[in-house]
Simulated scan of single mutants.
Amino acid sequence: MAAIRQIDWTAAMHAVAADRAKRPAGLLAARGLIAATSAKRRPLVVAGEYDRAAIMAAAVAAARVHQARTGSTWGEAMSVTLKATWQLARAARTARAH
């Protein structure tokens, strides 16, 4: 008797998609905080180019707030806020291009 494994590919693909769709905790709050504070003081995009220093400064400031709110590690807080800051920078660059 041969050993046969059957895989439910539909369920497997749904599980993979569900894992990818998860947002890190606090991503939307971090994006709102950055948009309301840091991005207004110092633009993230200057002359169509990303201002990496401004992006990093905004992410660090937001990470401090994020870490205080959630009690996460510094690495997790920076990961979330850098993702949020780059999303805002890409959106700003696209908006200026059109």
Rank of each mutant, 00 (worst) to 15 (best):
I4G: 10
I4K: 07
I4C: 12
R5L: 08
D8V: 03
D8N: 13
W9G: 14
T10F: 09
T10Y: 05
A12V: 07
H14Q: 15
H14L: 14
A17Q: 12
A18Q: 14
D19Q: 09
A21F: 07
K22L: 08
R23H: 13
P24L: 03
P24I: 03
G26T: 09
L27R: 04
L27A: 09
A30D: 02
A30Y: 03
I34F: 04
I34R: 02
A35Q: 15
A36P: 08
A36L: 09
T37R: 00
A39Y: 00
K40E: 09
R42M: 05
P43I: 06
A47N: 15
G48M: 11
Y50E: 01
D51Y: 11
D51P: 02
D51R: 01
A54R: 09
A54F: 06
A61N: 03
A62D: 08
A63M: 03
R64I: 02
Q67P: 03
A68M: 11
R69D: 04
T70W: 07
T73I: 06
G75H: 08
A77I: 03
M78N: 01
V80Y: 05
T81Y: 01
T81C: 02
T85N: 02
W86L: 15
W86N: 14
Q87W: 03
L88H: 11
A89N: 00
A89Y: 00
R90I: 11
R90L: 11
A92N: 01
T94C: 09
T94P: 04
